[in-house]
Nucleic acid binder design. Sequence first.
DNA 1: GGAGAAATTAACCCGTTGGATAAATACTGT
DNA 2: ACAGTATTTATCCAACGGGTTAATTTCTCC
Lengths: 237, 237
Amino acid sequence: MAKAKAKRNLRWQRDPEGMRLRILEAAKQEFSAHGLAGARVDRIAAQAGANKRMLYYHVGNKDDLYLAVLEGAYDKIRSEERGLDLEHLDPPEAIRRLIEFTWNYFLRNPEFLSLLQTENLARAKHLKRSAKVKSMHSPFVEMIRAVVRRGVESGDFPVAVDPVQLYISIAALCFFYLSNSATLSVIFGRDLLAKDAKAERLAHMVGLVLAALTGQSAALFDVVKPPKKGAAVAQTV
Amino acid sequence: MAKAKAKRNLRWQRDPEGMRLRILEAAKQEFSAHGLAGARVDRIAAQAGANKRMLYYHVGNKDDLYLAVLEGAYDKIRSEERGLDLEHLDPPEAIRRLIEFTWNYFLRNPEFLSLLQTENLARAKHLKRSAKVKSMHSPFVEMIRAVVRRGVESGDFPVAVDPVQLYISIAALCFFYLSNSATLSVIFGRDLLAKDAKAERLAHMVGLVLAALTGQSAALFDVVKPPKKGAAVAQTV
DNA sequence: GGAGAAATTAACCCGTTGGATAAATACTGT
DNA sequence: ACAGTATTTATCCAACGGGTTAATTTCTCC
């Protein structure tokens, strides 16, 4: 009973690492929910179960906090991207996997979408200052390049495509649908995040890209929808 | 000389309509440049060459101002959309025009992109309250539906596609590239808004969509780029 | 077991910001 | 020309929000 000091009357415990993580997690939520200007330092502190002073002690000011969150977000996606193995799949299947991964990652990490939107509204002012993020190259472009090359060789794909453009397009198809689902849902008068709608969207994206790459429109567009009953009035953007 | 009061010693003139327009224009710039929370009411007033009180007098509080701007933005794009005539073009050409219009509209109206991003970060909270916007149906979905039907009949398009999905996809390809050009440019280490890059992107988008619809990959992907010299290291998102 | 460092709390500071009030000035119809 | 109204200016203010200062408590290592 010498070391086991039963006297646990402490008002608080030390936990620097844990505290830092809680702060960053809270900051991620706050920044993705309210943007940079809309985020409240006090709310982050409260959410982290900490004192406001702790943010400055462990991370820095609001901007530092924001950048740390952003870097963490990039770090996470890069890490998961590296886990995707497309080498052993035949080219069309590899492309499908790629789209599905992107789609699901965005679905599972909505804060990532918000953070990117926020950073783009800020014209990437912070990213530009982050050597860390600049050095975090995504493996996807090279993966795509390899898949396209194989596809052309195997005859699956009649022609080659610029892998950078293709990657941006795949990201675009997924990203826009999800990041703009709020306004789109209002405009179209239906919930784009409903389970059916999401499945339909994924099928469409895969169909579109594979049809373009393989030239097999028909086979892939099994998405040919019979005009829905009560067909919604047409609306856009 | 009776009416021609030479006495132009006025400190200011009245101009309600003009004032309102200047306020809304200034507000559009401010909100698109800084987002909702980041926008400063004082800056809008200054930019409009007005007193802050005028904003409240002519439009309302910050939120009213923001919604008015948003509604104006939707009004404008809807109006231009209606000017697009695809009826007399053969289906592939019609699709190309549609993409080009969307692309160019976004290029000419970057504030529109920012406003949509901002509103989506706010989960369309304001749009939901706007009966005005909800009633502004875009003609594009019906236009696309008609074009696709014609294309299938003429044999240009082997299969039909859901016009809503196709419209979202076209918007996505254009929107994402531009709205995220800041972060993408940093990540890829090159300027995605350079003239060449934009032309390349437009060609890619048209090629992708038309290849998917017609099944003629080769013909449309004249974009087949020879691997660029000093090929940039692969990077993403 | 105690001194010094690390981690955390509590309280305060002060410029900013959205919004309000009241007074002044220009216009309009009669 | 003048009364009444519409438009605009000139101040003010209370709340908020990021950041700081100083004191307190816990831990670690001799």
